[in-house]
Design a binder for these strands. Structure first.
Lengths: 318, 318
DNA sequence: AAGGCTATAATCGTTGTGACTATAAGTGGT
DNA sequence: ACCACTTATAGTCACAACGATTATAGCCTT
C-alpha cells in the first residue's frame, strides 16, 4: 500500500520539526531454559538503530539492524508501540522510537560476539509462576503497600493500593499473566526498579530483584511480553517459536514458558486437537524419556481458513 | 515514563536520517445516524499534522492538531499504527505517520467550519450488515473472483480466491465484522477502490461503491474500524461514546452501529447486567416511544477491579 | 521385574451463551 | 375505552466450551 500522500496544509518550512526515528526490536525465542530475548551489551540492551534513508521500510530497517548487531535473521515481525522520548539534547532534535516484536527459533548460534540470549525472567523474576507463586512476591507486597501509604491524599492512597492489588494478585486475587506491563510500570512508579532512579530522583529504596536494562528497554520488553501473552490466546503465533517437528508436550512447554504458568495437559491436547492446528507426521521421538511421542507439524493451511479464531488456550478462566 | 535514553552507537552525524513525523487522528462518535468519523475537507481527509517540537508528547500533539483543525476536544485516545511512507519528494526527507484512534461523544457542534462528521459506511458501504447482507456484496463477489482468475499462476489464483472468500463471506461463510481492514486491503490490491489508481496504474475498472479519501486515510480509517470492532468485545470502551445517562437499548444500538450487525436483545442485556458494567440511576426516560426505559450510567469503579475481562458482547460465536 | 516417566483416551460437571418465549408498561389512534 | 404498536424486562431451554479428574498404554532405567 504505497500511496502518495495528499497535499498538506500548515507544514512548516525548514528543519524545525525534524526528528530521528529509532527502531527497537524485541526478538523472542524459547529453548529448554525458558523464554529468551535477544540482547546486546551483555544483556543490557535490545538491538536497535536509527531508521535510515537506505531502508525500504520500517520492517526492513529493523531486520537490517538486528542482523547487523546480532547476526540473527528475523521471521515473524509485529509492531509494538511508538513513543516519543523527552528531549535529551535540548536542541532541535527529538527521537521517536518504534518498537517491534519478533518471533524466531533459536538456531544459528553464530559467533556474532555481541549477541546474547537472556531469559525473560532474569529481568522479571516475579513473572514466572510455573513453579507456583514466586516467594519474592511476598516481599514485594509490603513494599507496594508502603508506597501506597506514602501518597499525599486518601484518594491516591486508595488508588495505588487497588492498582497494586490487581496487578500483583494481592488479597487472594487471581494472578493475571497478561498484566506484565502494568506490573513493571507500577514498580517504576513506586521507584522499586533501578531505572526509576536514573532521573536523579533521590529515591533511596533498594530495587526489587530483576536485572535492569539501559534506557527504557526493559519497559519495551515488558510490553512485548504482555502482548505475546495476550496474543497466543487468540492467534496461533506459538508455532513461530517451534521447530518444524515437535511433540505436543514441547508445544505445551513453550506456551507455559511464555505465559509463565502451567497448563492442564489433557485440556491442552484436546484444545490443540479440535482446532486442527497441528497434523501428525507419523514419526515419533523417543528423546523424551517415557513413551515415545508423536511428532506433529503446524497445519499451515488452517491459517487461511480461520483468520480469526486462533489458538485458544486453556489458561485459567477465572 | 520519561526515561533518559542510553548511549547510542553508530548514530550518523548530520541530518541524513532525519524524518518528519505526522500525527493522524481517527475520531469516532456515534449518533442516531450511525457511527461517524470526524473529517476535514468535506469528508476527504482525517485531521492530521506534523509532530512539532512544541508538543510535549505524541498524544498532546495529536490533540492540538485535532482541536485546531476541527475544534473537537478529545477524550479517550489509543495508538493505532505507525508506518513510513515511501519517499514522496525524492529528497533526503521521509515521512513517518503515527495514527491514533480517539473516541468521543458528538457534542460541541461548534461552528469550526472545516469539520464534518461523516458516517463510516459512506466510505465502507459493504461493512454495514445491520439490515442484513448489503445487496452490493453480490455484485462485488464476481469482481473479486475475476481478479483472482487474473493471476498469473495457479497458486496465486487459489490464494486470492481463498482470501476473498474468507474476507467477504463467500461460499456461505459467516460474515466476520473484524476483517474490515483485510477487506479494504483486498479491494485495494484488486484495484477496486479509487485509491489504487492514483499511482498511475492503468487499471480501467470502475471502483466499487464507497467514498474515497486523500492519501491513505481511508486505509487508516479501516484500521480504526477493525481495531474498535475487536476491542469492544473485551474492553468496555463503548462507554466513551455514550452520554452520561443512557438506556440499555441506546447502548445496544451503539454497539450495533460499531460492529455493523444486530445483537440479540435479551442476551445483550444479560451480558451487560451480569458484568456489572452499568448501574441504575433510578431515573427513566419516555423518549423512546414505548414503555419508559431505565436510565443507566457507566459503573466506573468496575474498570479498576477488572482490568482484563471487559465487555464481552454476544456477537455470533461461529 | 519394578518403578517412573510420558503419551493418549475418556468421563463428569459447571459455566457461558445463543435462540426463544412471555410478560409488563407506556404511547397514540379511533 | 379499547386496540394496536412500541419498548422494557424477566425467564427458559439446550448446546457447546472447558476445567478437573481418572484410566490406560508404552517405553525407559535400575
Amino acid at each position: 500500500m504505497d500511496q502518495a500522500k495528499g497535499p498538506r496544509k500548515g507544514r512548516a518550512i525548514g528543519k524545525t520539526n525534524d526528528v530521528n526515528a529509532d527502531l527497537i526490536a524485541v526478538v523472542v525465542a524459547v529453548n529448554d531454559a525458558g523464554p529468551c530475548v535477544l540482547t546486546i551489551e551483555q544483556g543490557a540492551a535490545l538491538p536497535s538503530g536509527p531508521f535510515e534513508l537506505a531502508h525500504r521500510s520500517l520492517q526492513s530497517g529493523l531486520r537490517a539492524w538486528v542482523e547487523l548487531q546480532t547476526g540473527q535473521p528475523l521471521g515473524y515481525i509485529e509492531q509494538l508501540y511508538t513513543f516519543a522520548d523527552r528531549d535529551r539534547t535540548g536542541g532541535n532534535e527529538r527521537v521517536i522510537s518504534i518498537s517491534y516484536l519478533a518471533l524466531t527459533r533459536e538456531e544459528d548460534a553464530g559467533a556474532s560476539g555481541r549477541r546474547r540470549w537472556a531469559s525473560w525472567y532474569d529481568y522479571f523474576p516475579w513473572e514466572d509462576h510455573r513453579s507456583g507463586r514466586p516467594p519474592m512476591l511476598e516481599e514485594l507486597w509490603p513494599r507496594l503497600i508502603e508506597w501506597a501509604q506514602d501518597a499525599d491524599d486518601g484518594a491516591t492512597r486508595f488508588d495505588r493500593r487497588r492498582r497494586a492489588a490487581v496487578a500483583f494478585a494481592m488479597d487472594n486475587r487471581a494472578w493475571n499473566e497478561e498484566l506484565a506491563l502494568q506490573r513493571y510500570e507500577l514498580l517504576y512508579e513506586a521507584a522499586l526498579v533501578e531505572e526509576a532512579k536514573r532521573g536523579g530522583d533521590s529515591a533511596i529504596l533498594a530495587p526489587v530483584p530483576g536485572r535492569s536494562m539501559s534506557g527504557d528497554h526493559r519497559r519495551i520488553l515488558a510490553t512485548a511480553i504482555a502482548r505475546l501473552r495476550s496474543k497466543i490466546k487468540y492467534r496461533p503465533v506459538v508455532f513461530e517459536l517451534m521447530p518444524p517437528l515437535f511433540t505436543l508436550l514441547q508445544l505445551q512447554r513453550t506456551v507455559e514458558a511464555l505465559s509463565g504458568r502451567l497448563i492442564n495437559k489433557p485440556n491442552f491436547r484436546r484444545l490443540i486437537g479440535q482446532q486442527e492446528l497441528v497434523e501428525k507426521t507419523g514419526a515419533t521421538t523417543a528423546e523424551t524419556g517415557g513413551r515415545p511421542a508423536q511428532l506433529y507439524r503446524f497445519h499451515h493451511a488452517i491459517l487461511n481458513e480461520r483468520p480469526v479464531a486462533g489458538t485458544k488456550l486453556p489458561l485459567a478462566r477465572a
